[in-house]
């Protein structure tokens, strides 16, 4: 499928919001791919981290928000630690998660979680998980 790229899309309000909330300039990324190369959670992702940035650069924010990748970022900071351009990708992922939840509601339905497993979890796992997956 051929997608249309236009000035309206590339300079859309969504891109501006993501840049504002993340504090990151998405155009700083030159797609070396080092984030994708080192991401420990990439196995669970449908798109590589650099592809998420690419979608934002293209103004295809909706596609980025639909991607499962943003929910599998563990904010481990490995990408940011090695990014040659200093792009704080975990912050970008956080902005996308926030935006996705604003549009579609919480990502995690607490009622559907495995209660037995939950009883085992340390407190910080819940708190962190709920903060990342719910608003």
């Amino acid at each position: 499928m051929r997608v249309t790229i236009s000035v309206e899309q590339v300079r859309s309000e969504w891109v501006r919001r993501i840049e504002e909330v993340s504090g990151q300039d998405v155009m700083a990324c030159y797609h070396c791919g080092k984030c994708s190369a080192g991401c420990p959670a990439a196995e669970a992702m449908d798109l590589l981290p650099n592809q998420i940035i690419r979608l934002v650069q293209l103004g295809q924010v909706e596609r980025a928000l639909e991607s499962q990748t943003i929910w599998y970022c563990a904010a481990c900071q490995t990408c940011y630690a090695r990014c040659p351009k200093g792009v704080d990708l975990p912050r970008l992922m956080e902005a996308l998660r926030e935006l996705a939840m604003q549009k579609r509601g919480d990502h995690l339905e607490i009622a559907r979680l495995d209660v037995q497993a939950l009883a085992e979890f340390p407190q910080q796992a819940f708190i962190a998980g709920f903060r990342k997956y719910t608003t």
Binding site: P40, A41, F130
Partner: peptide, 23 residues
């Protein structure tokens, strides 16, 4: 030594953390 174990991903999906911890 410095690879991520999966952190809070386990809450959502232990399957995502498994390969990370296994590594």
């Amino acid at each position: 030594r410095g690879e991520c174990c999966g952190a809070y991903l386990t809450v959502k999906s232990p399957e995502a953390s498994m390969p990370m911890s296994y590594r």
